[in-house]
Design a protein around this nucleic acid. Structure first.
Length: 560
RNA sequence: UGCCCGAUGGUGUAACGGUAGCACGAAAGAUUCUGAUUCUUUUAGUCAAGGUUCGAAUCCUUGUCGGGCAUCCA
């Protein structure tokens, strides 16, 4: 047959491929991404989005976006708009847009059906009594005293629940399954609770709202979902999912579970992220340190890098911990190809080229992106006074230090070879200026006599430079495995108090004054940066460091 | 003490009873006007014990370890 190797399928795609091969549902593939509109999407959701939309795309299927809005007290339109925007930004478009709340009427009718079948009943116990009656993992639960109400009484009570005759908590509707089941989920799970609350879409039409387990599978069924993909913590719910499908005799959607994403040094629970926002630990949901899609976007992550990352980590049923560097590498890989290079000095050290004529300047040609010839070239101004990075000079330099030091020669990127002759210090002994000489013969960066230099450093012309604030970010957590963070309030101690470092007066080459906030740039030898979409203005430039470049010298230094 | 699920180099994954492979990391080297990129090489693994089989990471049994499940959350 084909000489081409079959693409390796993860277990989920294998399931889909098998069901197509078996002709299940006529070989049709329908998935859905079902977020609850109670928070912003994060990188963990990206994995699910890439899986659901990716499978539909790869197998000629369809994927819906469905908001699981069954809890009016937690949900808000603010979130539905942002979720839509984030899904699109990631690069996906849904076939149909739905809300679980669109199915409230149907869900109600089905509940009536279950009552009539003797498969559901109204329980009038208190919350505490229901909880106590559930039993434990090792002891069976006990039947509610209301479990054997007649169908007529149940129908009447349920109708009156819906009509608003009762206060919150007075009654609930429960599925009548088995209070002694070894699956705790089957111990007469709640289907409806009374909530006199305003719903962001249905307004005050309803005062009873379905629980997740009663709404989710049926919503899938109504949308003819063939593969209902969710994370492992819903695994134990599958038996109930199937129970409703069977009792109702509706389209048999099937649930498949995969392991959610865990990342080192990264908080992923919506609850914790919300706490960070509310406690002003971060500036908001879009703080560049947040793992939210909005945060990542503002930080400078590209949708491509996120999609590639999701592909790289694969899909399994093993609950692992992915190293953050995998994410960062996916990002570097993408940015390396697309980001134009610029020169910027984060911690400026003044350099005077003593043999360069005073008051003069010239334009030198620099390549925009060595990985992409089409990116072209630009002109960079050079003059007598420059700034270089403080880290690029050492007074007592070890042999392995390839940068500037007394009597050592380095190349200024795209410019000239310079040699350091004199170190000027202030009264406290701090180095405040370097006196260097340049070799005019080396213009452009090459010596006609063929001599080599070991190092090339970046620079900016002092008189032409633009000033900017640059924000350097580090992980939000100090602990590698977020699962090690204790429950309760102590988790705050796991926060990295140095996750943000602001450099107030950095010096950038002039072309950086007009770079837009949707274009990543590489500050040569430092990393990838992006103008901050919220705070950067032509008057006050603000750049975010998206990610550093790999740094072999830093690694060498760490070795000692 | 119940039920469900999982376990392959440091990490993430592949191998569908027949050569344990890939990526990231790490180490060494080459190239380089970014100590970047790129390229080469090396490193290191089937949780344990039994069983089935000509042959087991794969199938069976038992054990060990890890995760999930007892919100009127999703």
């Amino acid at each position: 047959m084909s000489t081409e190797e079959a693409p390796k399928l993860d277990f989920m795609r294998q399931i889909v491929a098998d069901s197509i091969a078996a002709g299940t549902h006529g070989g049709r593939v329908q998935t859905r991404f079902p977020p609850e509109p109670n928070g912003y999407l994060h990188i963990g959701h990206a994995k699910s989005i890439c899986l659901n939309f990716g499978i539909a795309r790869e197998f000629g299927g369809r994927c819906n976006l469905r908001f699981d809005d069954t809890n009016p007290t937690k949900e808000d339109v603010e979130y539905v708009d942002s979720i839509k925007e984030d899904v699109r930004w990631l690069g996906f478009e849904w076939d149909e847009l739905h809300f679980a709340s669109d199915y409230f009427e149907q869900l109600y009718d089905w509940a009536v059906q279950l009552i009539k079948q003797g498969d559901a009943y109204v329980d009038s116990q208190s919350l505490e009594a229901i909880r106590a009656g559930r039993g434990t993992a090792t002891e069976p639960g006990i039947n509610s005293p209301f479990r054997d109400r007649s169908v007529e009484e149940n129908l009447d009570l349920f109708a009156r629940m819906q009509a608003g005759e009762f206060a919150d908590g007075e009654h609930v509707l429960r599925a009548k399954i088995d209070m002694a089941s070894t699956h705790l989920i089957l111990r007469d799970p709640l289907m409806y609770r009374i909530r006199h609350a305003h719903h962001h879409r249905t307004g005050d039409t309803w005062c009873i709202y379905p629980m997740y387990d009663y709404a989710h599978g049926q919503s899938d069924s109504l949308e003819q979902v063939t593969h209902s993909i969710c994370t492992l913590e819903f695994e134990t719910h599958r038996v109930l999912y199937d129970w409703f499908v069977e009792k109702l005799g509706i389209f048999p959607s099937h649930q498949y579970e995969f392991a959610r994403l865990n990342l080192t040094y990264c908080l992923m629970s919506k609850r914790r992220l919300l706490e960070l926002v509310e406690a002003d630990v971060v500036s908001g949901w879009d703080d560049p340190r947040m793992p939210t899609l909005r945060g990542l976007r503002r930080r400078g992550y590209t949708p491509e890098s996120l999609r590639n990352f999701c592909h790289d980590i694969g899909v399994t049923r093993y609950n692992g911990l992915t190293d953050m560097v995998v994410l960062e590498n996916a990002l570097r890989h993408d940015l390396n190809k697309r980001a134009e290079r610029r020169m910027a000095v984060l911690n400026p050290l003044k350099v005077v080229i003593t043999n360069y004529p005073e008051g003069e300047s010239e334009l030198l040609e620099a390549v925009n992106n060595p990985e992409d010839e089409a990116a072209g070239k630009r002109q960079v101004p050079f003059s007598r006074e420059l700034y270089i990075e403080r880290d690029d000079f050492m007074e007592d330099a070890p042999k392995k230090f390839f940068r500037l030091a007394p009597d050592r020669e380095v190349r200024l990127r795209w410019a000239y070879f310079v040699k350091c002759n004199e170190v000027i210090k202030d009264a406290d002994g701090n180095i405040i200026e370097l006196r260097c000489t340049y070799d005019p013969e080396t213009k452009g960066g090459n010596a006609p006599d063929g001599r080599k230099v070991k190092g090339t450093i970046h620079w900016v012309s002092a008189q032409h430079a633009v000033s900017a604030e640059v924000r350097l970010y580090d992980y939000l957590l100090k602990v590698e495995d977020p699962a090690d963070i204790p429950e309760g309030d102590a988790w705050r101690e796991a926060l990295n108090e140095n996750s943000l470092q602001v450099l107030a007066d950095c010096k950038l080459e002039p072309s950086l004054a007009e770079v837009s906030s949707d274009m990543a740039v590489q500050f040569e030898r430092l990393g990838y940066f992006i103008a901050d979409s919220q705070d950067s203005t032509p008057e006050k430039l603000v750049f975010n460091r998206t990610v550093t470049l790999k740094d072999a010298w830093a690694k060498e230094q760490k070795k000692g």
